[in-house]
């Protein structure tokens, strides 16, 4: 179907409105990020006095300096890196083997396991905070990074598994059979042939889980009480004091927190684009 019309004017209108809509969406989606950046470089003394302006008359880095040198933020930041990184790696590993077995094997109870994993995705998390706290407390896993990693991994494995399964489904079974006939055991075939071909899927899953764990607030807030084990979303709340909210510092911390997520996505974006379009084209 030729949606763009035939005459040059029709084409111009078609493509013009096409890009206009994309631009409108991008502005809509990125505006909060822009505002984050803007407030983070606005000096405190003019934050409320200048009214609503697209860019402050003076800019400053003092919020960043404060966050990096005088707050606990670098510590929260490290905690977040540890928690999100470990969660992403462990979850992806578990999801890879589980997804592979879902994709390749028929076994007793498979339907039940899949159903159970789906059910876990249906509960509002708030419902589960009390029981999870009750379970973790006697084990000494509240107020600890390990506890957070376990909870995040448990909650992310089902979705990550289904994601990985769909990537494995896209790889023909013949490939590992050929690899097995060529001299591999099934596990070697998985590791040497299938896994390298699933790298886009692995990257997509890593990215998904990393961001989910990186920005998780509810459990981080409820299960952790000390500063020592706080992650950065909780840390952001420390900029809210009894009498005021230190927006400049909070926004500066927010911008800094964006950096690892962005870096991570830059790193995997090549695989991610492949991954998200995998299956769309044969070849």
């Amino acid at each position: 179907m030729n949606l763009s019309g035939n005459s040059p004017t029709q084409k111009a209108i078609y493509w013009g409105s096409h890009y206009l809509m994309i631009a409108a969406f991008v502005v809509f989606a990125l505006f909060p990020l822009y505002w984050l950046l803007k407030v983070s470089v606005t000096p405190n003394d003019i934050l409320y006095t200048e009214g609503v302006r697209m860019w402050p008359s003076r800019t400053t880095w003092e919020n960043y300096t404060f966050v990096l040198t005088q707050s606990n933020f670098p510590h929260y930041f490290m905690n977040s890196v540890i928690v999100a990184g470990t969660t992403a790696i462990v979850t992806t590993m578990v999801a890879a083997v589980t997804g592979y077995s879902f994709s390749r094997f028929a076994f007793r109870g498979k339907v039940i396991i899949v159903a159970l994993m789906l059910i876990t995705q249906m509960f509002p998390l708030v419902m589960l905070i009390a029981p999870i706290f009750k379970i973790l407390a006697p084990l000494g896993l509240t107020d600890s990074l390990t506890g957070l990693i376990i909870v995040y991994t448990a909650f992310n494995v089902p979705f990550a598994t289904f994601l990985m399964q769909s990537f494995f489904d896209g790889i023909p079974k013949d490939l590992e059979e050929a690899a097995m006939i060529d001299g591999n055991t099934r596990f070697q075939a998985f590791r040497r042939i299938i896994l390298p071909l699933t790298l886009p899927g692995v990257a997509a899953t890593l990215g998904f889980v990393f961001t989910a764990a990186w920005s998780e607030l509810l459990f981080a807030l409820m299960l952790v009480s000390s500063d020592a084990a706080s992650t950065f979303p909780v840390g952001l709340l420390s900029f809210v004091s009894k009498f005021s909210v230190d927006f400049g510092q909070m926004m500066a911390a927010g911008v800094l927190a964006l950096i690892p997520a962005c870096a991570f996505f830059l790193l995997i974006q090549r695989y991610l684009v492949q991954g998200l379009t995998a299956g769309a084209v044969k070849g």
């Binding site: 023909p172 013949d174 059979e177 050929a178 390298p196 071909l197």
Partner: peptide, 12 residues
């Protein structure tokens, strides 16, 4: 040795 219908060549 086996030759598959899909050829099953290792794409990488």
């Amino acid at each position: 040795a086996m030759v598959f219908q899909s050829y099953a060549l290792y794409p990488h």
